[in-house]
Amino acid sequence: MKKPTVCIVESLGFLEEQSHREGEIISRTMNLSGKPSAYVCIRTLNELKAIAQEFGNSKHRYFHLSCHGVRDDDGQNVGVALTTRYVSNEELADILAPHMDGRRLFLSSCLAGRGDFPRLLLERSKCHSVLAPMNEIGFDDAAVFWTSFYHLMFKADKTRMVNSVLEETVKKCALLVNERFRFYTRVGKAGEVKFSTLGPLKIPKRATSGSAE
C-alpha cells in the first residue's frame, strides 16, 4: 500500500544549486512538521528516468517535480529544463506515465499549468491529478506556496488528499503569493480530463511613491 508521503525531485542550473533549492526548503519544512519526505537534486535525463522508476517502485504517493519551465517563441510551455538538457512535454509524459498510477503530481515549473503536459500525463496513465502554476513564478513565491500547501493539506488529513480540500487549500495559499494555478483531474466513467483555475486575478503592483495615481 502506498503511503501519503512526498518524493521531491529538483533540477537547477549549475550556478543555482547552492542558492535556489526550493525543493529542499519544502522537504525540510515537512520534516519539521513530522511528515517524512524524500528529496533529491538531479541533473541529467538518465537521472530523471532512474528516479521516476525508483518512485514507481516505492511507497510514496505524491511526486513533486521542481524545475524551470521552457517556452517557445509564442510564450507557450513546451517542456521543462534539467541542468543539462531540455525535456519536451511529450517526453516527460512518457517518462512519468508508467509510474504515476494512483498517485498525484505536483509540478513547480513556470507556465506548466498552461501547457499540454498535464493532459498528456493523465491520458497516458491513471494518475489522480496534476497541480501546476499558470504563469512565471519566482523561487521565493514557489517556496512559500508549496510549503504552505503541504503544511495545510497534511494538517487537515495526514492519511490522504481529497480533491475538494486540495482545491480550497490551493485557493488559500495562492493568495499569499498572488499567483494562479491549474488543477487537472479525470472525471466521469470516460475519464475525461478537465481542469479548474485556482487563485486570484493578478493584482497590479502598487505605484511607487511620488508617481501619479
Score class of each variant (00 low, 15 high):
Arg61Met: 14
Glu10Ser: 12
Leu12Asp: 03
Ile51Cys: 09
Glu54Asn: 11
Phe55Gly: 00
Val40Gly: 02
Ser37Leu: 06
Arg85Leu: 08
Phe63Ala: 04
Asp74Ala: 12
Glu91Ser: 06
Ser11Trp: 04
Arg43Asn: 15
Val40Lys: 08
Ser19Met: 09
Arg43Val: 11
Leu15Pro: 03
Cys7Phe: 13
Ser11Lys: 02
Leu92Ser: 02
Thr5Glu: 13
Asn31Ala: 13
Ser37Pro: 01
His60Ala: 12
His60Leu: 08
Thr44Glu: 05
Leu48Asn: 00
Gly69Leu: 05
Arg43Thr: 14
Lys59Asp: 15
Val40Met: 14
Phe63Met: 04
Thr83Gly: 10
Thr29Ile: 12
Cys67Val: 09
Arg71Cys: 10
His68Phe: 07
Ile42Lys: 00
Gly75Tyr: 07
Ser11Gly: 01
Ala93Thr: 10
Val80Glu: 02
Gln18Asn: 10
Glu91Ala: 07
Leu45Gly: 01
Phe63Ser: 02
Leu82Gly: 00
Asn77Ala: 15
His64Gln: 03
Gly79Glu: 10
Ala93Asp: 05
Glu47Ile: 14
His64Trp: 05
Tyr86Leu: 07
Glu16Lys: 01
Ala52Val: 03
Asn46Gly: 15
Gly69Ser: 05
Phe63His: 01
Ser58Leu: 10
Asn57Glu: 15
Asp73Cys: 08
Val78Ala: 07
Ser58Val: 04
Thr83Ala: 14
Phe14Trp: 10
Thr44Met: 02
Arg28Pro: 01
Thr44Ile: 04
Val87Pro: 00
Gly69Phe: 05
Arg71Gln: 13
Ser88Cys: 03
Gly23Ile: 07
Val40Ala: 12
Leu82Pro: 00
Ser88Asp: 06
Asp72Val: 04
